[in-house]
Design a protein around this nucleic acid. Structure first.
Length: 903
RNA sequence: GCCGGGGUGGCGGAAUGGCAGACGCGCAACACUUAAAAUGUUGUGAGCUUACGCUUGUGUGGGUUCGACUCCCACCCUCGGCACCA
C-alpha cells in the first residue's frame, strides 16, 4: 500500500458501484407489503449548464451518508434521482444560440450525472427520471385532466406579468423587484385568459396538515402566513342619501337617534374587517378602484345615480382617478406610500354609530383581498389615519390603554390591542364604553349579528395557482378547442400530448407553440376541422410537484404509478430541500397529494414526513458565491487537489447542515490530513493474504515517528490474527500487561462510544459532530500506538473503517477490498454492533464545586453515595483550601454529575 | 410594520441546566531536512502571576437557581421571509 492518492482509486470505485447496481432497490415486489423502508429524497435538481456547485454537494452528501448508514442497519433504502428538466434557462439559451432545449438539457444532465457519480452519491440510477421525457409528462398531463374532471383546473381571465421588451409573459419568480430579470424592463400587468388549479379548495387542510409532519417550525409558519387565514367579520353598510351637513363635526352620543335609519336604500357595501370592535370609530368607507360599485357610479343609467346627486365634475374626477390607478403597476402602488383617493359622492350608514359616513375610492385598498372594501377607522388604524388627515375626514378614537389618555398614542395601540385586548378599553362606543376589548369584541359582534348587518367570516391570502405559461420548453396543456372555442380534454389515448419540435425560439409575444404547423394539423386530424390546440404550456412547478410519486414506479406505461408501490413507499421519510422552495413547491406538492388521496390513488395525507433545509455555502468572504464577486469555489477543483472524500468530509464538517456557512480554503486541509492519518493507520495492518509483507512499499515521504511505531515485526502479524492480545488469555509477553489491558480497554470503550455516537448523530443530521467523534477516536488510537504498548486489533480497525465509510466511501472501500482483501463492498457490510458492556464504567471523575466554582475533581466508584463522595472531596487539599475549617452550609450532589459545596 | 432564525476565541464551530471553547483551521515554538514542503510534538480566549495558580469571560441589562451559553423578562445588532392583507 502506498501513500494516500485518492485519484488512483476514486474514479474506479464510482464506476464499479454503478456497474454492480449496488444501490438499486431490488426489494420492491409487486403485491407485497414493504416494511422497514426508508425513502430519502433530495430536491429535484434543475440541470443547469454550469454543472454541480459546492452548494449541491452538501445536501447530496448528507443524504448519501444517511442512505449508506440506513442500508447498513438493515433499512430498505430508496434514494432515487431525477431532473426537473423543463424550464426557462434552457429556452433562453435556445433564443440566444438557436440550440434546441432538448439538446442542451441532455448535455447538462450528462454533466450532472457524471459529477454526482464522481462524488459517490449512492443514487438508485435505475429509477432516474426527467420531466421533459414524454414518458414522464404523459402523466403530468394525465394529472391535469384528473383535476379538470373534478373542476379543479379551470380557465379565467387574469392579470399576468408581462415584459414589454422581451415580448413575453414572465413567471412570478422571473420578476425581481418589479423588473424583468433578463432585461431589467419594468414588468406590467396584462389581462389574459389563463388556466388555474384550484389549490384554495384545500386551504384549511393545507394549514391543519402541517401538524402531522416533522418540518422546521419556521417553514410551517411561512406556509401558514402565505395561506394567510384571518378571522373577522363581514359587515354590511347600507348606502344612503348624501347629506354632507350631517357629517360636520363630531356629534356627541346624546345626539344619536336610533330611529334615524336610512330611508332611501339604494344598495349596500360589504366590508371585511378583523377589527369589528372598532366599528364605532369607522368614520368613512374606502373601496378599491376596481370595486364593482364604481361601475354603478359611472353608469349613467344606474339606480344609484338616480338616487343621489353626484355632480358631473365629481364623476369626472372619479374617472380620472380610476384611469390613473389602472395604469399604475402593482409595484408603483406599493412604492408610493403617499395616500391618494377621491370621494365617490356616496354615503353609507354606520350601523353601530348610526351616522352617515362618506365613501371614498383609494388604491391603498386592495381589490383582491376581502371584499375590496374597508371600513376606515382612522382612530386606530395607521393607514386610515394618514388618509383621514390628508383629506380632512373626521377621526373618532375608540381605544384607550388602561390608565392612559394620550390621544396621539391611540393609533400605535392598534397592533397591541390584538395581542393584549384586556389591557385596552373601549371609548366613544356607545353602550360598550368602559369594556375591555376581550369583552367588547364579542359584545359588538353579537350586537351586529342581532341587527342582521354582520356575520363572522374568514378570508385567505392564498390564490389559485396560475399554471399557464406562454413558453415553449414545458409540458403542453392537454386541452383542445372546438370551432366555437369551447375547451375539451385531449383524449387519454392521445397522451403523451407531444411537445412539437417545429417551432422558432424567437420571442414574439405569442405562445411559441402557435408557430408549430404540426401541432395545428395534429389537432385537426384527431379532433376535426376548425379545432385548435391550447398553445400554452404548464408551469414547471406542475412537473416538479409530483415526481416523488413517479419515483415509486418510474417506468410504468399504464399508470401514473402502481397504487401498491405508492402505498409502500409514501410518504417520503426524509426530504432535504433548499429554503427557497418553502412556499411554492412544497405547497403545490401537498395540494397534489391531497387531491390524489381524495381520488383514491394515495393513502397518505402528506407527502413528506420529515423535511429539513440545507444552509447555503457562502464564499470565503462570507458573502453569497457569485461569479461577479469572484468568490466561487468549484467542487471539481477541490476534488482534483484532495479527492472526493475530502470534499465530502469537509462540507459535512463545516457546521450544522441547516445553517449558512462560509467556505474556508485552508480548513479543507484538516479533513485531508484526517483521511491521510486514517489511511496510514491501515498501512501497518496485515496486507492481503497473497501479498508479502516485505512488498509493502515504504512511505514516500520517509518514516515519521508515528510510522516507526506502527511498523511491527513480521511475526506480529500472524500472532494478531490468532489470539486476542487484549483479553486476559491473550499473548502478552512483549507487552506490559497492565498497560496493554487498560489502554486496550480504553480504546475499545472509545471505539464503541464512537460507533454509538456516529449512528445517532447521523440519525439526527449532526454530521459535523459525528466527524469530530471519529477524529477523537483516531487521535486516541494514534496516541496509544505511540506509547508502543498498545496494538490495534484488526476487528476494531474494521469497525472504525465501517463507521467512516458513509462519509468517505472511496477510501474506506479501497482499504477494505485492497488492503484487507474483503470480497464484498464495505457498503454492503453491516453497521458494527455496540458492545454496551464496554460502555459501563466502574469509576468516574466528577467535578467538585465550592460556591458554584470548580475547585477540583474526585474519582469515585459508580455506585458511591453522597456521603462517600463528600468524604472524598474533603480529602482533596486543593478543594479544602476553599472551605474554611472544613465547615459548609449545604451540599448539592447530582448523582454521577457534580458536587457543589456551599460554604 | 408583521413572522421566523441567529449573536460563544483570530476563523468554522462544540456544549440544551452541571468542568464553556470538543473537533478542525490559523498562529507560535520545537523535531525531522542542506533548505523548503510534507509530517510529527507541545502550546494557544483575555488579564494578572517567576511559578502553584487567581480573576474574568458565551450581544446588553435585569431575573429564577446551589449552579445559566442553556430557562424567564426587557432591549440592541444581524440574517431570511412577508408586507397599504384592513
Amino acid at each position: 500500500m502506498s501513500k494516500y492518492f485518492p485519484e488512483q482509486f476514486e474514479e474506479k470505485w464510482a464506476q464499479q458501484w454503478v456497474a454492480d447496481g449496488l444501490f438499486q432497490k431490488t426489494f420492491d415486489v409487486e403485491g407485497q407489503t414493504l416494511e422497514n423502508k426508508m425513502y430519502l429524497l433530495y430536491a429535484f435538481a434543475y440541470p443547469s449548464g454550469s454543472g454541480l456547485h459546492v452548494g449541491h454537494v452538501e445536501p447530496l452528501t448528507a443524504l448519501d451518508i444517511m442512505a449508506r448508514y440506513y442500508r447498513s442497519i438493515g433499512k430498505k433504502v430508496f434514494f432515487p434521482v431525477g431532473w426537473d428538466a423543463f424550464g426557462v434557462p434552457a429556452e433562453n439559451y435556445a433564443i440566444k444560440t438557436g440550440v434546441p432545449p432538448v439538446q442542451t438539457t441532455k448535455e447538462s444532465i450528462a454533466t450532472f450525472s457524471r459529477q454526482i457519480k464522481r462524488i459517490g452519491i449512492s443514487y438508485d440510477w435505475g429509477a432516474e427520471l426527467a420531466t421533459c421525457h414524454p414518458g414522464y409528462y404523459k402523466w403530468t398531463q394525465w394529472l391535469f385532466l384528473q383535476l379538470y374532471k373534478k373542476g379543479l383546473a379551470y380557465k379565467k381571465d387574469a392579470p399576468v406579468n408581462w415584459c414589454p421588451s422581451c415580448q413575453t409573459v414572465l413567471a412570478n419568480e422571473q420578476v425581481v423587484e418589479g423588473k424583468c430579470e433578463r432585461c431589467g424592463t419594468d414588468v406590467i400587468q396584462k389581462k389574459m385568459d389563463q388556466w388555474f388549479f384550484k389549490i384554495t379548495q384545500y386551504k384549511d387542510e393545507l394549514i391543519s396538515g402541517l401538524d402531522q409532519v416533522d418540518w422546521p417550525k419556521a417553514t410551517k409558519q411561512q406556509q401558514i402566513n402565505w395561506i394567510g387565514k384571518s378571522e373577522g367579520a363581514l359587515i354590511k353598510f347600507e348606502l344612503c342619501h348624501s347629506d354632507p351637513d350631517v357629517m360636520s363635526g363630531e356629534e356627541s352620543r346624546k345626539d344619536m337617534d336610533p330611529s334615524v335609519s336610512p330611508q332611501d336604500d339604494t344598495g349596500e357595501i360589504k366590508v371585511f374587517t378583523t377589527a369589528h370592535d372598532t366599528i364605532y370609530g369607522a368614520t368613512f368607507l374606502v373601496v378599491a378602484p376596481e370595486h364593482e360599485i364604481i361601475n354603478e357610479i359611472l353608469n349613467p343609467k344606474s339606480e344609484i345615480l338616480n338616487n343621489t346627486q353626484i355632480s358631473n365634475d365629481q364623476i369626472q374626477l372619479i374617472e380620472q382617478y380610476i384611469n390613473q390607478a389602472k395604469s399604475k403597476t402593482e409595484e408603483e402602488r406599493l412604492i408610493n406610500k403617499e395616500k391618494t383617493g377621491v370621494f365617490s359622492g356616496l354615503y353609507a350608514f354606520n350601523p353601530a354609530s348610526q351616522k352617515e359616513i362618506p365613501i371614498w375610492i383609494a388604491d391603498y385598498v386592495l381589490a383582491q383581498y376581502g371584499t375590496g372594501a374597508i371600513m376606515a377607522v382612522p382612530g386606530s388604524d395607521e393607514r386610515d389615519n394618514q388618509f383621514a388627515k390628508k383629506f380632512e375626514l373626521p377621526i373618532t378614537y375608540v381605544a384607550q390603554k388602561n390608565g392612559s389618555s394620550d390621544k396621539d398614542k391611540f393609533i400605535s395601540f392598534s397592533n397591541e390591542i390584538k395581542v393584549n385586548p384586556s389591557q385596552y378599553m373601549l371609548i366613544n362606543s356607545g353602550e360598550f364604553n368602559g369594556q375591555d376589548f376581550t369583552e367588547g369584541r364579542e359584545g359588538i359582534m353579537k350586537k351586529l349579528e342581532d341587527m342582521g348587518v354582520a356575520k363572522r367570516e374568514t378570508t385567505y391570502k392564498l390564490r389559485d395557482w396560475l399554471i399557464s405559461r406562454q413558453r415553449y420548453w414545458g409540458a403542453p396543456i392537454p386541452i383542445v378547442y372546438d370551432p366555437e372555442g369551447k375547451a375539451h380534454m385531449v383524449k387519454e389515448e392521445h397522451l403523451p400530448w407531444m411537445l412539437p419540435t417545429d417551432v422558432d425560439f424567437k420571442p414574439t409575444g405569442e405562445s411559441p407553440l402557435r408557430l408549430s404547423k404540426e401541432f395545428k394539423e395534429r389537432v385537426e386530424k384527431l379532433y376535426g376541422k376548425g379545432w385548435t390546440p391550447e398553445y400554452d404550456t404548464m408551469d414547471t412547478f406542475v412537473d416538479s410537484s409530483w415526481y416523488y410519486l413517479r419515483y415509486t414506479d418510474p417506468r410504468n406505461e399504464n399508470e401514473f404509478a402502481r397504487t401498491d408501490a405508492m402505498k409502500n413507499w409514501m410518504p417520503a421519510d426524509f426530504y432535504m430541500i433548499g429554503p427557497e422552495h418553502i412556499v411554492l413547491h412544497l405547497l403545490y406538492s401537498r395540494f397534489f397529494t391531497k387531491f390524489l388521496r381524495d381520488e383514491g390513488y394515495l393513502s397518505v395525507d402528506e407527502p413528506f414526513q420529515k423535511m429539513r433545509h440545507q444552509g447555503m455555502i457562502l464564499g470565503p468572504d462570507h458573502r453569497k458565491m457569485s461569479k461577479s464577486k469572484g468568490n466561487v469555489i468549484n467542487p471539481d477543483d477541490v476534488m482534483k487537489e484532495y479527492g472526493a472524500d475530502t470534499l465530502r468530509l469537509y462540507e459535512m464538517f463545516l457546521g450544522p447542515i441547516d445553517q449558512d456557512k462560509p467556505w474556508s480554503v485552508e480548513s479543507v486541509q484538516g479533513q485531508y490530513r484526517f483521511l491521510k492519518r486514517a489511511w496510514s493507520l491501515f498501512e501497518s495492518l496485515p496486507p492481503r493474504p497473497r501479498q508479502e509483507v516485505e512488498s509493502t512499499p515504504p512511505y514516500k515521504g520517509g518514516e515519521s515517528k508515528f510510522e516507526k511505531a506502527l511498523l511491527l515485526p513480521k511475526e506480529e502479524y500472524s500472532r494478531r490474527n490468532v489470539g486476542d492480545p487484549l483479553s486476559e488469555g491473550g499473548t502478552k509477553k512483549d507487552l506490559p500487561f497492565e498497560g496493554s489491558t487498560r489502554r486496550g480497554r480504553d480504546v475499545s470503550q472509545l471505539l464503541h462510544k464512537t460507533i454509538k455516537k456516529v449512528g445517532s448523530d447521523i440519525e439526527q443530521l449532526k454530521f459535523n459532530t459525528a466527524i469530530s467523534a471519529m477524529m477523537e477516536l483516531l487521535n486516541k488510537i494514534e496516541a496509544e500506538l505511540r506509547m508502543k504498548n498498545y496494538e490495534l486489533r484488526i476487528e476494531d480497525a474494521k469497525k472504525f473503517l465501517k463507521i467512516l465509510s458513509p462519509f468517505a466511501p472511496f477510501m474506506t472501500e479501497e482499504i477494505w477490498r485492497n488492503q484487507l482483501g474483503e470480497k464484498e463492498s464495505i457498503h454492503t457490510a453491516p453497521w458494527p454492533e455496540v458492545d454496551e458492556s464496554l460502555l459501563v464504567e466502574s469509576t468516574i471523575t466528577i467535578p467538585v464545586q465550592v460556591n458554584g466554582k470548580v475547585r477540583g475533581r474526585v474519582v469515585i466508584g459508580i455506585g458511591d453515595d453522597e456521603e462517600s463522595v463528600v468524604a472524598a472531596a474533603m480529602q482533596d487539599e486543593t478543594i479544602i483550601a476553599f472551605i474554611p475549617e472544613k465547615k459548609y452550609k449545604k451540599i448539592i450532589y447530582v448523582k454521577g454529575k457534580i458536587l457543589n459545596i456551599i460554604v
